[in-house]
Simulated scan of single mutants.
Amino acid sequence: MANSSFNSLKYDVFSSSELAEDFFDSLKDDYAGFSKWYTKKMVAGEKAYTFRGPKKRLDGFLYLKSECISEGIDPILPPGKRLKIGTMKINAHGTRLGERFIKKAFDHAINEKVEFIYVTVFSKHKSLVDLFLRYGFKFHGYKDTPDGREEVFLKLLTPLEGNPVKDFPKLGLKNKRYFLLAIYPEYHSSFLPESILNNESLDILEDVSHTNSIHKIYISGIARAKQMRSGDIIVIYRTTDRPGFAKFRSVATSIVVVEEVRQIKSFDTESEFVRYTKPYSVFTKDELKDYFTNKKKHYIIKFTYNAALATRIIRGKLIDECGIAAPRWDLIGLTEDQVRWIADFGGVNEGLIID
C-alpha cells in the first residue's frame, strides 16, 4: 500500500553531509575505517540507497556492489558473479524498511544476472541476521577483519527450495496450480501500483524494480479461494474502470506466489486478525475490524509479489491469444501454458523464472 513516508527513499551519490549525521555513529564504532571507506566511495561517485522517515531523519542506508571475487572469507565463496550487500543499516520503526531494502538487493541481483548474493555481519546484530535468514540467506562461514570476526551469509538464486518466502523473488512454473484473481481498480491502484516505480521517488527512476513490495494480503469472499495452497501461482487481473469496456480496460498486471490461505474464523481474536492483515493489506484498521465482526469475506490470501508485468495485457488478448474463457472472471483456473504466455507477452524479466 502506498505510504507517503516511502517517498523518502532515494538512490543517489554518497554525501558528506550525511556522513556527519549521528545515524552512522554505530557503524563508525563497529568499523574503525568506516569514515575513510565512505569518503573513498564518495570521491568515486558511487551510489547508495538512503531512507528518511517522516521527521526527515536518516533512518536507512544500503550500499550494493557487484563482484567476481571476494577476499578474506573462509571457506571461499563459490565461483561466479555475485552481489555484495556492502553496508545495510536501518532504524526500524515499524515501516518494514528491512524488507524494502532486501527487495532492492534482489532487484539489483536479477538485473545484473548474478548467481548469488552475500553479506557479512557481526553476530550481535541479531535482528538483521534474522531478516536475512527469513529471505533465504544461509550461514556460509566467517570473515576475520581488524574490527573482529563477521559471519557470512549467502543466498543462491537457484535452485528453488519450495518455500515462497525463501525463494523470493524467483519462481518456478512447473507442476504448480494456476489461478487468475480479479481485483477491483479502486483497490488495485493502492494495493498493487499499476506502474513500476509509481509509488517511488523520482530520484530513483533509473532503478528498475520488478515488485513494489515483498508481501501482500488480499481478503476475498470467493469460496474457491479455500482451494489455494502454498506455492500456487496467481495472475493478478485488474477489472475495468469503465463499465462496458472490459475487453480493452481489464488487464493482467502481475504474477504472484501464494504463501498461505487462511479463513477469518481461524483467528481467535480481533487483535490477532488485525495484526496479521494490517501490514500488507489496503484496508484500514476499522475496516478490518468490521470484516472480523461481520465475516462478510471469509478468506485471507497472503502472497509474495514476484513480478509486475512490464506490458499489461488487456482482456481481449487474454481471450483471443491466450485462450482464457470463463463466464465470470473473479477467481478462475489457468494452465501452465497460459501463465507462461502471460509472463512472456507481459515482459517478465526472464531471470525471475527458473524453469
Results as ranks from 00 to 15, higher is better:
12 D>W: 07
23 F>V: 12
25 D>Q: 14
25 D>P: 00
30 D>F: 12
43 V>P: 00
49 Y>W: 13
50 T>S: 10
55 K>M: 10
59 D>E: 14
60 G>M: 08
64 L>G: 06
70 S>V: 13
72 G>Q: 03
76 I>S: 03
79 P>H: 10
82 R>F: 04
82 R>A: 09
84 K>W: 07
86 G>V: 05
87 T>E: 07
88 M>L: 15
89 K>D: 08
93 H>Y: 12
94 G>V: 12
109 A>T: 04
110 I>M: 13
110 I>Q: 02
122 F>N: 04
125 H>R: 09
128 L>T: 15
129 V>T: 11
134 R>A: 10
147 D>C: 12
150 E>Y: 09
152 V>S: 02
160 L>N: 04
162 G>K: 06
163 N>I: 11
169 P>C: 09
171 L>F: 14
173 L>C: 08
173 L>N: 02
178 Y>P: 01
181 L>V: 10
184 Y>N: 10
189 S>W: 02
191 F>T: 00
193 P>A: 14
201 S>R: 03
209 S>Y: 09
213 S>D: 12
217 I>H: 01
227 Q>G: 02
232 D>H: 14
241 D>R: 08
244 G>P: 01
244 G>Y: 11
250 S>E: 05
266 S>M: 10
267 F>I: 07
268 D>Q: 13
272 E>F: 09
273 F>S: 03
274 V>D: 06
286 D>H: 05
288 L>K: 04
288 L>F: 11
293 T>E: 14
304 T>M: 05
311 T>F: 11
314 I>G: 00
334 L>Y: 07
340 R>L: 15
